[in-house]
Design a protein around this nucleic acid. Structure first.
Lengths: 140, 140
DNA sequence: CTTGATGCAAACCGTTTGCAGATAG
DNA sequence: CTATCTGCAAACGGTTTGCATCAAG
């Protein structure tokens, strides 16, 4: 992804902080938390304030450049909004997160809308369990 | 549900605070938050400390009397563990929560375990949208 | 009588905010 | 030059903790 172009397309001022944060998120292999962002060497060296990081994240969310992910950790994570729709599986021991391509049967949405009278805009689906390494470790 | 019996079956001391909290949760129609618990008149009149409420909730969780629900609100909710497995739909405008009976195709679990190498212990599925009242209100 | 439950106060973590000064356009 | 982005510090809401006291068994 072209970070500078993405920012200018969204009419956002190009600043060192914004470029660094977006650069970091766009290279992440899993959804990342604000804490991950602050600890990234690339960001640390710029000494960006935590409040600024939160503000940048909100701007990127508002402009649909990133999306929020909630893996029931008591904090949010973020990933590029351009990624295709998918879900996540989390290891409850080591915390590793993997993407899942599988999704709901699309018929489910309609039947739930009918059942509840809601109009559904989004859904979230998270799986929890043990990754293969943790499972092997626990079996010993 | 018999609150006193539930506590004694789990070898938990029967106290006013525990009985009141469990009584309250067992009559709730939707998953409730700690804040809901403290604001319930029944609980308020007993002047139970917030720290105590959190401790009671943890004990009930540990003993599988209640379960944690995460509706992406930045806080947790709780519901009776004895309720049959189900999911939730949340109105993003007014916050109302409804239960959903629908669930995943059970085949999905196996295919995801195969795809990822994880052994899945739980999953969570949340729907977000507008309830019928809020939708009507917004259309006007 | 003894273990463990409670109240109180302090602290935690993730997040938001107000304000003054810096900087992109 | 002006709008807005940033750093700093303070505060927030949800949650956890240490410690002394109290009550269930």
């Amino acid at each position: 992804m072209n970070v500078a172009l993405t920012l200018s397309t969204a009419n956002l001022k190009k600043t060192k902080a914004r470029e660094a944060v977006l650069e970091y998120i766009s290279h992440a292999k899993t959804p990342i938390s604000i804490q991950d962002v602050e600890n990234a060497p690339m960001i640390k060296s710029l000494k960006i304030d935590q409040a600024t990081l939160y503000r940048i994240i909100h701007i990127l969310l508002d402009n649909h450049i990133i999306r929020q992910v909630d893996l029931h950790e008591g904090k949010f994570r973020y990933e590029l909004a351009a990624l295709p729709h998918h879900h996540h599986i989390v290891c409850t021991k080591c915390g590793i997160v993997k993407d899942i391509s599988d999704c709901l049967d699309p018929k489910a949405k309609q039947s739930i809308e009918k059942e509840t009278g809601f109009s559904i805009t989004t859904h979230a689906l998270e799986f929890f369990g043990l990754c293969s390494s943790c499972r092997i470790f626990l079996e010993k």
